[in-house]
């Protein structure tokens, strides 16, 4: 299948620190691409570059053939790229449904009338088993519920590329199953998912392809079993003496 999102040679440096160094990436509709690597290897920065949270120093990003490298964050949302944050970001004094409604109203595609946005948002929250918590504020939700609300906010803008930053981390065993089935269902409806994750069970189960980053560069890419056996990857994770 043709790639939906293509990034080529993305680089970003903060002062002297090169956080991402010439990384390319592509993902197709319905595919789950795993993005793994040790802490500080540049995974979140790469996600920020794709989502438009930060601008790359070099490289290009194409969405559906259109160059979006220069587009600001909100216009990339309207080009159907959205994300979740590693640490949940949700307006503290708004209810879950209001946050999701904002996404429905400003998202990609045809404009939804204000009166209908509430129903659409409620539907999204319902899909994620949150309908009964729709009127709660951030501090009235559990950690897992917050993560789900954030996903609903991202889905509200009708993305076709979804970047999940450690969305499955911190979940217990039973919650992990639920979370994984949510991600699987996203892919099943044709969304291209980029999954930054440390939970290897989830990566093995969900991803058709895995990309490994270390020190800002891509060091391996391929099917999960193959990549995770790769000596270089083990070295990156465990250090030289263990390899």
């Amino acid at each position: 299948m043709a790639a939906l999102l293509e990034a080529e040679g993305l680089s970003k440096a903060f002062g002297g620190l090169v956080a991402v160094n010439g990384v390319s990436l592509s993902v197709s509709p319905g595919e789950v691409l795993g993005l793994i690597g040790p802490n500080g290897s540049g995974k979140t920065t790469l996600l920020n570059l794709i989502a438009g949270t930060t601008r790359p120093d070099a490289g290009a990003i194409r969405m559906d053939g259109e160059d979006v490298t220069r587009l600001p964050n909100h216009l990339r949302v309207r080009r159907r790229i959205n994300r979740t944050f590693q640490l949940v970001r949700m307006p503290a004094n708004l209810s879950a449904i209001e946050t999701v409604m904002a996404g429905v109203l400003y998202g990609a595609g045809e404009r939804v009338p204000f009166k209908e946005a509430g129903y659409v948002a409620a539907g999204l929250l319902g899909e994620l088993n949150l309908l009964l918590k729709a009127d709660r504020r951030l501090d009235q939700l559990t950690y897992i519920e917050q993560k789900r609300v954030e996903l609903a906010r991202a889905l509200a803008t009708r993305p076709s590329v979804l970047l999940l930053d450690e969305w499955l981390s911190g979940l217990g065993a039973s919650e992990l199953d639920g979370g994984m089935s949510v991600v699987w269902s996203l892919a099943a409806r044709g969304i291209a998912v980029v999954l930054v994750e440390h939970v290897m069970t989830a990566v093995r189960a969900l991803c058709g392809r895995v990309m490994v980053m270390n020190a800002g560069a891509k060091i391996a890419e391929g099917p999960p079993e193959e990549v995770l056996r790769n000596a270089e990857v083990i070295r990156a994770y465990l250090g030289d003496e263990d390899a």
């Binding site: 989502a51 438009g52 949270t53 600001p72 964050n73 909100h74 949302v77 309207r78 959205n82 994300r83 944050f85 970001r89 949700m90 307006p91 503290a92 004094n93 708004l94 946050t99 904002a102 996404g103 400003y106 998202g107 990609a108 906010r153 991202a154 509200a156 803008t157």
Partner: peptide, 11 residues
Amino acid sequence: EDETVARQVGV
């Protein structure tokens, strides 16, 4: 509340 979230919902 949070401008980053605002941008991320497409505002």
